[in-house]
Nucleic acid binder design. Sequence first.
DNA 1: TATTGTTATACTCTATAACTATA
DNA 2: TATAGTTATAGAGTATAACAATA
Lengths: 174, 174
Amino acid sequence: MATRQKTSRKAAATAAAIRRARTANGRAHNSDAGDDIGLDALIGHAGYAVRRFQLWIFQDFIKTLATVDIRPTQYSVMTVIGANPGLSQMAVAKRLGIERARLVHLLDSLEERDFVSRIPSATDRRSHALHLTARGKTALAQFKRLAAEHERHVAEKIGKDNREQLLQILACFT
Amino acid sequence: MATRQKTSRKAAATAAAIRRARTANGRAHNSDAGDDIGLDALIGHAGYAVRRFQLWIFQDFIKTLATVDIRPTQYSVMTVIGANPGLSQMAVAKRLGIERARLVHLLDSLEERDFVSRIPSATDRRSHALHLTARGKTALAQFKRLAAEHERHVAEKIGKDNREQLLQILACFT
DNA sequence: TATTGTTATACTCTATAACTATA
DNA sequence: TATAGTTATAGAGTATAACAATA
Protein backbone atom coordinates (compact mmCIF):
# COMPACT_ATOMS: atom_id res chain seq x y z
CA MET A 1 0.00 0.00 0.00
CA ALA A 2 2.93 2.28 0.63
CA THR A 3 4.19 1.43 -2.84
CA ARG A 4 1.89 3.84 -4.64
CA GLN A 5 3.22 6.85 -2.79
CA LYS A 6 6.84 6.10 -3.53
CA THR A 7 7.29 8.20 -6.63
CA SER A 8 6.10 11.49 -5.22
CA ARG A 9 7.82 10.89 -1.91
CA LYS A 10 11.09 10.11 -3.58
CA ALA A 11 10.84 13.16 -5.79
CA ALA A 12 10.33 15.36 -2.75
CA ALA A 13 13.19 13.68 -0.94
CA THR A 14 15.48 14.15 -3.89
CA ALA A 15 14.61 17.82 -4.16
CA ALA A 16 15.45 18.16 -0.48
CA ALA A 17 18.75 16.35 -0.98
CA ILE A 18 19.65 18.68 -3.81
CA ARG A 19 18.77 21.74 -1.76
CA ARG A 20 20.96 20.44 1.05
CA ALA A 21 23.88 19.70 -1.21
CA ARG A 22 23.59 23.13 -2.80
CA THR A 23 23.55 25.08 0.41
CA ALA A 24 25.65 22.93 2.68
CA ASN A 25 28.81 23.29 0.70
CA GLY A 26 32.06 25.02 1.38
CA ARG A 27 31.94 24.35 5.09
CA ALA A 28 34.09 21.26 5.06
CA HIS A 29 36.51 22.96 7.36
CA ASN A 30 34.04 23.85 10.06
CA SER A 31 34.56 27.46 9.16
CA ASP A 32 31.41 28.23 11.17
CA ALA A 33 33.03 28.35 14.55
CA GLY A 34 34.83 26.19 17.04
CA ASP A 35 38.15 26.19 15.29
CA ASP A 36 39.65 26.60 18.73
CA ILE A 37 37.97 23.47 20.07
CA GLY A 38 40.54 20.72 20.30
CA LEU A 39 39.88 17.28 18.90
CA ASP A 40 42.45 15.53 21.08
CA ALA A 41 42.79 11.86 20.20
CA LEU A 42 40.44 12.22 17.23
CA ILE A 43 43.24 13.91 15.30
CA GLY A 44 45.14 10.64 15.16
CA HIS A 45 42.23 8.53 13.99
CA ALA A 46 42.03 7.71 10.31
CA GLY A 47 38.35 6.82 10.69
CA TYR A 48 37.41 10.32 11.77
CA ALA A 49 39.17 12.00 8.85
CA VAL A 50 37.77 9.44 6.44
CA ARG A 51 34.23 9.98 7.69
CA ARG A 52 34.46 13.76 7.29
CA PHE A 53 35.99 13.34 3.85
CA GLN A 54 33.26 10.97 2.76
CA LEU A 55 30.54 13.39 3.85
CA TRP A 56 32.14 16.11 1.75
CA ILE A 57 32.72 13.89 -1.27
CA PHE A 58 29.19 12.47 -1.32
CA GLN A 59 27.68 15.92 -0.97
CA ASP A 60 29.74 17.17 -3.89
CA PHE A 61 28.76 14.13 -5.97
CA ILE A 62 25.07 14.68 -5.24
CA LYS A 63 25.37 18.38 -6.04
CA THR A 64 27.32 17.82 -9.26
CA LEU A 65 24.82 15.22 -10.49
CA ALA A 66 21.77 17.04 -9.14
CA THR A 67 20.59 18.00 -12.63
CA VAL A 68 20.29 14.32 -13.55
CA ASP A 69 19.07 13.24 -10.09
CA ILE A 70 21.55 10.40 -9.58
CA ARG A 71 23.08 9.45 -6.24
CA PRO A 72 26.38 7.66 -5.69
CA THR A 73 24.86 4.21 -5.15
CA GLN A 74 22.63 4.49 -8.23
CA TYR A 75 25.66 5.50 -10.25
CA SER A 76 27.68 2.54 -9.00
CA VAL A 77 24.89 0.11 -9.85
CA MET A 78 24.46 1.45 -13.38
CA THR A 79 28.21 1.50 -13.97
CA VAL A 80 28.65 -2.13 -12.96
CA ILE A 81 25.67 -3.27 -15.03
CA GLY A 82 26.94 -1.25 -18.00
CA ALA A 83 30.36 -2.88 -17.76
CA ASN A 84 28.99 -6.39 -17.14
CA PRO A 85 25.66 -6.83 -18.94
CA GLY A 86 23.60 -9.83 -17.88
CA LEU A 87 24.70 -9.96 -14.26
CA SER A 88 22.22 -11.29 -11.71
CA GLN A 89 21.02 -9.16 -8.82
CA MET A 90 23.00 -11.32 -6.40
CA ALA A 91 26.18 -10.76 -8.38
CA VAL A 92 25.74 -6.98 -8.44
CA ALA A 93 24.87 -6.88 -4.75
CA LYS A 94 27.92 -8.92 -3.80
CA ARG A 95 30.27 -6.96 -6.00
CA LEU A 96 29.21 -3.61 -4.60
CA GLY A 97 28.65 -4.73 -1.02
CA ILE A 98 24.96 -3.81 -1.13
CA GLU A 99 22.28 -5.93 0.56
CA ARG A 100 20.28 -7.81 -2.04
CA ALA A 101 17.10 -6.61 -0.33
CA ARG A 102 18.16 -3.03 -0.86
CA LEU A 103 19.17 -3.59 -4.46
CA VAL A 104 15.57 -4.58 -5.20
CA HIS A 105 14.40 -1.03 -4.45
CA LEU A 106 17.35 0.58 -6.20
CA LEU A 107 16.55 -1.39 -9.35
CA ASP A 108 12.83 -0.62 -9.02
CA SER A 109 13.57 3.08 -9.29
CA LEU A 110 16.10 2.66 -12.10
CA GLU A 111 13.65 0.48 -14.01
CA GLU A 112 10.84 3.01 -13.49
CA ARG A 113 13.06 5.61 -15.12
CA ASP A 114 13.81 3.23 -18.00
CA PHE A 115 17.55 3.07 -17.35
CA VAL A 116 17.75 -0.63 -16.48
CA SER A 117 15.72 -3.70 -17.40
CA ARG A 118 15.37 -7.04 -15.64
CA ILE A 119 15.35 -9.77 -18.25
CA PRO A 120 14.43 -13.35 -17.26
CA SER A 121 17.57 -15.47 -17.18
CA ALA A 122 17.75 -18.15 -19.86
CA THR A 123 19.53 -20.63 -17.60
CA ASP A 124 18.02 -19.99 -14.15
CA ARG A 125 14.38 -19.09 -13.91
CA ARG A 126 14.89 -17.68 -10.40
CA SER A 127 17.21 -14.93 -11.49
CA HIS A 128 17.19 -11.85 -13.67
CA ALA A 129 19.81 -10.76 -16.17
CA LEU A 130 20.37 -7.05 -15.71
CA HIS A 131 20.92 -4.80 -18.70
CA LEU A 132 20.99 -1.09 -19.42
CA THR A 133 18.26 0.09 -21.76
CA ALA A 134 19.19 2.19 -24.77
CA ARG A 135 18.11 5.21 -22.77
CA GLY A 136 20.17 3.94 -19.83
CA LYS A 137 23.31 3.71 -21.94
CA THR A 138 22.95 7.27 -23.19
CA ALA A 139 22.18 8.49 -19.70
CA LEU A 140 25.14 6.66 -18.15
CA ALA A 141 27.49 8.31 -20.62
CA GLN A 142 26.28 11.68 -19.40
CA PHE A 143 26.49 10.59 -15.74
CA LYS A 144 30.11 9.59 -16.31
CA ARG A 145 30.95 13.01 -17.68
CA LEU A 146 29.38 14.66 -14.65
CA ALA A 147 31.08 12.19 -12.31
CA ALA A 148 34.41 13.06 -13.91
CA GLU A 149 33.65 16.70 -13.19
CA HIS A 150 32.97 15.77 -9.57
CA GLU A 151 36.27 13.94 -9.51
CA ARG A 152 38.00 17.14 -10.62
CA HIS A 153 36.43 18.89 -7.64
CA VAL A 154 38.03 16.26 -5.42
CA ALA A 155 41.39 16.88 -7.05
CA GLU A 156 40.99 20.63 -6.50
CA LYS A 157 40.08 20.06 -2.87
CA ILE A 158 42.90 17.75 -1.80
CA GLY A 159 45.36 18.21 -4.65
CA LYS A 160 45.85 16.18 -7.81
CA ASP A 161 48.81 14.16 -6.52
CA ASN A 162 47.17 13.52 -3.16
CA ARG A 163 44.06 12.22 -4.89
CA GLU A 164 46.13 9.75 -6.86
CA GLN A 165 48.02 8.63 -3.78
CA LEU A 166 44.75 8.12 -1.99
CA LEU A 167 43.41 5.95 -4.81
CA GLN A 168 46.57 3.87 -4.65
CA ILE A 169 46.45 3.48 -0.88
CA LEU A 170 42.81 2.41 -0.93
CA ALA A 171 43.00 0.27 -4.06
CA CYS A 172 42.70 -2.90 -1.97
CA PHE A 173 39.18 -1.93 -0.89
CA THR A 174 37.64 -1.66 -4.33
CA MET B 1 5.65 6.38 24.63
CA ALA B 2 8.39 4.87 22.55
CA THR B 3 10.89 6.24 25.04
CA ARG B 4 10.37 3.53 27.60
CA GLN B 5 11.31 0.75 25.22
CA LYS B 6 14.51 2.39 24.12
CA THR B 7 16.90 0.73 26.53
CA SER B 8 16.03 -2.86 25.72
CA ARG B 9 15.74 -2.12 22.02
CA LYS B 10 19.09 -0.43 21.93
CA ALA B 11 20.70 -3.26 23.83
CA ALA B 12 19.37 -5.75 21.32
CA ALA B 13 20.48 -3.58 18.44
CA THR B 14 23.94 -3.25 19.89
CA ALA B 15 24.24 -6.99 20.36
CA ALA B 16 23.27 -7.42 16.74
CA ALA B 17 25.82 -4.84 15.65
CA ILE B 18 28.52 -6.66 17.56
CA ARG B 19 27.54 -9.98 16.00
CA ARG B 20 27.70 -8.39 12.58
CA ALA B 21 31.06 -6.81 13.18
CA ARG B 22 32.44 -10.09 14.48
CA THR B 23 31.32 -12.21 11.59
CA ALA B 24 31.45 -9.76 8.72
CA ASN B 25 35.14 -9.22 8.91
CA GLY B 26 37.95 -10.22 6.63
CA ARG B 27 35.89 -9.85 3.49
CA ALA B 28 36.96 -6.33 2.70
CA HIS B 29 38.24 -7.52 -0.62
CA ASN B 30 35.04 -9.14 -1.80
CA SER B 31 36.77 -12.46 -1.50
CA ASP B 32 33.32 -14.05 -1.70
CA ALA B 33 33.03 -14.03 -5.45
CA GLY B 34 32.80 -11.65 -8.34
CA ASP B 35 36.46 -10.77 -8.46
CA ASP B 36 36.14 -11.04 -12.22
CA ILE B 37 33.35 -8.47 -12.36
CA GLY B 38 34.76 -5.21 -13.65
CA LEU B 39 34.11 -1.93 -11.90
CA ASP B 40 34.81 0.21 -14.94
CA ALA B 41 34.69 3.94 -14.10
CA LEU B 42 34.24 3.20 -10.39
CA ILE B 43 37.93 2.34 -10.18
CA GLY B 44 38.84 5.95 -10.81
CA HIS B 45 36.48 7.42 -8.24
CA ALA B 46 37.91 8.39 -4.88
CA GLY B 47 34.43 8.38 -3.35
CA TYR B 48 33.91 4.68 -4.06
CA ALA B 49 37.20 3.65 -2.47
CA VAL B 50 36.62 5.95 0.47
CA ARG B 51 33.15 4.55 1.06
CA ARG B 52 34.41 0.96 1.07
CA PHE B 53 37.28 1.92 3.36
CA GLN B 54 34.97 3.66 5.77
CA LEU B 55 32.72 0.62 6.00
CA TRP B 56 35.73 -1.52 6.88
CA ILE B 57 37.17 0.95 9.36
CA PHE B 58 33.89 1.51 11.22
CA GLN B 59 33.25 -2.22 11.45
CA ASP B 60 36.69 -2.77 12.90
CA PHE B 61 36.17 0.08 15.38
CA ILE B 62 32.84 -1.36 16.51
CA LYS B 63 34.34 -4.82 16.82
CA THR B 64 37.41 -3.64 18.72
CA LEU B 65 35.30 -1.61 21.15
CA ALA B 66 32.51 -4.18 21.36
CA THR B 67 33.43 -5.16 24.92
CA VAL B 68 32.77 -1.60 26.09
CA ASP B 69 29.83 -1.05 23.71
CA ILE B 70 31.02 2.25 22.26
CA ARG B 71 30.46 3.32 18.67
CA PRO B 72 32.56 5.78 16.66
CA THR B 73 30.25 8.75 17.15
CA GLN B 74 29.90 8.16 20.88
CA TYR B 75 33.68 8.00 21.11
CA SER B 76 34.10 11.26 19.22
CA VAL B 77 31.59 13.03 21.47
CA MET B 78 33.26 11.84 24.67
CA THR B 79 36.72 12.68 23.36
CA VAL B 80 35.75 16.26 22.50
CA ILE B 81 34.00 16.81 25.82
CA GLY B 82 36.96 15.32 27.64
CA ALA B 83 39.35 17.67 25.89
CA ASN B 84 37.09 20.72 26.22
CA PRO B 85 35.05 20.49 29.44
CA GLY B 86 32.13 22.87 29.72
CA LEU B 87 31.26 23.03 26.02
CA SER B 88 27.64 23.59 25.08
CA GLN B 89 25.73 21.07 23.00
CA MET B 90 25.72 23.45 20.06
CA ALA B 91 29.48 23.79 20.21
CA VAL B 92 30.02 20.02 20.26
CA ALA B 93 27.51 19.49 17.46
CA LYS B 94 29.15 22.13 15.26
CA ARG B 95 32.65 20.90 15.92
CA LEU B 96 31.85 17.31 15.01
CA GLY B 97 29.38 18.04 12.24
CA ILE B 98 26.55 16.30 14.07
CA GLU B 99 22.99 17.62 14.01
CA ARG B 100 22.10 19.15 17.34
CA ALA B 101 18.89 17.12 17.34
CA ARG B 102 20.88 13.94 17.07
CA LEU B 103 23.34 14.96 19.75
CA VAL B 104 20.43 15.13 22.20
CA HIS B 105 19.89 11.37 21.92
CA LEU B 106 23.60 10.60 21.92
CA LEU B 107 23.99 12.53 25.17
CA ASP B 108 20.89 10.90 26.63
CA SER B 109 22.49 7.49 26.30
CA LEU B 110 25.90 8.66 27.54
CA GLU B 111 24.23 10.32 30.53
CA GLU B 112 22.20 7.17 31.28
CA ARG B 113 25.46 5.27 31.47
CA ASP B 114 26.93 7.93 33.76
CA PHE B 115 29.73 8.90 31.38
CA VAL B 116 28.63 12.49 30.76
CA SER B 117 26.65 15.05 32.71
CA ARG B 118 24.73 18.10 31.56
CA ILE B 119 25.36 20.91 34.03
CA PRO B 120 23.26 24.09 33.82
CA SER B 121 25.37 26.88 32.39
CA ALA B 122 26.18 29.66 34.83
CA THR B 123 25.97 32.36 32.18
CA ASP B 124 23.17 31.20 29.86
CA ARG B 125 20.21 29.40 31.35
CA ARG B 126 19.27 27.96 27.96
CA SER B 127 22.43 25.93 27.57
CA HIS B 128 24.20 23.07 29.27
CA ALA B 129 27.86 22.79 30.12
CA LEU B 130 28.98 19.29 29.21
CA HIS B 131 31.41 17.41 31.42
CA LEU B 132 32.66 13.88 31.78
CA THR B 133 31.76 12.24 35.07
CA ALA B 134 34.50 10.59 37.12
CA ARG B 135 33.31 7.30 35.71
CA GLY B 136 33.33 8.82 32.23
CA LYS B 137 36.95 9.90 32.56
CA THR B 138 38.07 6.45 33.61
CA ALA B 139 36.00 4.86 30.88
CA LEU B 140 37.33 7.23 28.20
CA ALA B 141 40.91 6.33 29.11
CA GLN B 142 40.05 2.71 28.42
CA PHE B 143 38.20 3.59 25.21
CA LYS B 144 41.28 5.43 24.01
CA ARG B 145 43.46 2.38 24.59
CA LEU B 146 41.04 0.24 22.59
CA ALA B 147 40.76 2.89 19.89
CA ALA B 148 44.55 2.91 19.61
CA GLU B 149 44.39 -0.84 19.12
CA HIS B 150 41.85 -0.32 16.37
CA GLU B 151 44.19 2.23 14.82
CA ARG B 152 46.91 -0.42 14.75
CA HIS B 153 44.54 -2.67 12.81
CA VAL B 154 44.19 0.12 10.25
CA ALA B 155 47.98 0.41 10.01
CA GLU B 156 48.23 -3.36 9.50
CA LYS B 157 45.57 -3.25 6.82
CA ILE B 158 46.88 -0.42 4.66
CA GLY B 159 50.45 -0.12 5.91
CA LYS B 160 51.93 2.16 8.53
CA ASP B 161 53.33 4.72 6.10
CA ASN B 162 50.17 4.75 4.01
CA ARG B 163 48.09 5.41 7.11
CA GLU B 164 50.22 8.41 7.96
CA GLN B 165 50.06 9.75 4.42
CA LEU B 166 46.31 9.36 4.50
CA LEU B 167 46.06 11.34 7.73
CA GLN B 168 48.17 14.08 6.18
CA ILE B 169 46.14 14.20 2.98
CA LEU B 170 42.85 14.40 4.86
CA ALA B 171 44.04 16.73 7.62
CA CYS B 172 42.03 19.61 6.12
CA PHE B 173 38.77 17.78 6.84
CA THR B 174 39.22 17.36 10.57
C1' DT C 1 17.98 -28.40 1.01
C1' DA C 2 19.87 -24.23 -0.86
C1' DT C 3 19.46 -20.04 -3.58
C1' DT C 4 17.12 -15.82 -6.08
C1' DG C 5 14.32 -12.29 -5.72
C1' DT C 6 11.01 -10.21 -2.83
C1' DT C 7 8.56 -8.17 1.18
C1' DA C 8 8.54 -6.56 5.76
C1' DT C 9 10.63 -4.90 9.93
C1' DA C 10 13.96 -2.45 12.86
C1' DC C 11 17.73 0.39 13.82
C1' DT C 12 21.25 4.16 12.49
C1' DC C 13 22.16 8.40 10.52
C1' DT C 14 20.94 12.72 8.33
C1' DA C 15 17.87 16.61 7.67
C1' DT C 16 14.02 19.53 8.79
C1' DA C 17 10.29 21.74 11.20
C1' DA C 18 8.24 23.18 15.26
C1' DC C 19 8.02 23.82 20.15
C1' DT C 20 9.89 25.76 25.02
C1' DA C 21 12.51 28.54 27.58
C1' DT C 22 15.38 31.62 27.59
C1' DA C 23 18.35 35.65 25.63
C1' DT D 1 13.83 38.40 17.23
C1' DA D 2 17.11 34.98 17.72
C1' DT D 3 19.26 31.02 19.99
C1' DA D 4 19.80 26.35 22.93
C1' DG D 5 17.85 22.35 23.73
C1' DT D 6 14.15 19.29 22.72
C1' DT D 7 10.68 16.51 20.23
C1' DA D 8 8.81 14.58 16.15
C1' DT D 9 8.90 13.19 11.44
C1' DA D 10 10.79 11.56 7.01
C1' DG D 11 14.17 9.61 4.04
C1' DA D 12 18.61 6.89 3.09
C1' DG D 13 21.25 3.17 4.34
C1' DT D 14 22.12 -1.25 6.72
C1' DA D 15 20.88 -5.75 8.64
C1' DT D 16 17.53 -9.66 9.39
C1' DA D 17 13.95 -12.74 8.87
C1' DA D 18 10.68 -15.01 6.25
C1' DC D 19 8.30 -16.26 2.03
C1' DA D 20 7.50 -18.13 -3.02
C1' DA D 21 9.52 -19.95 -6.93
C1' DT D 22 13.08 -22.52 -8.54
C1' DA D 23 17.39 -25.16 -8.40
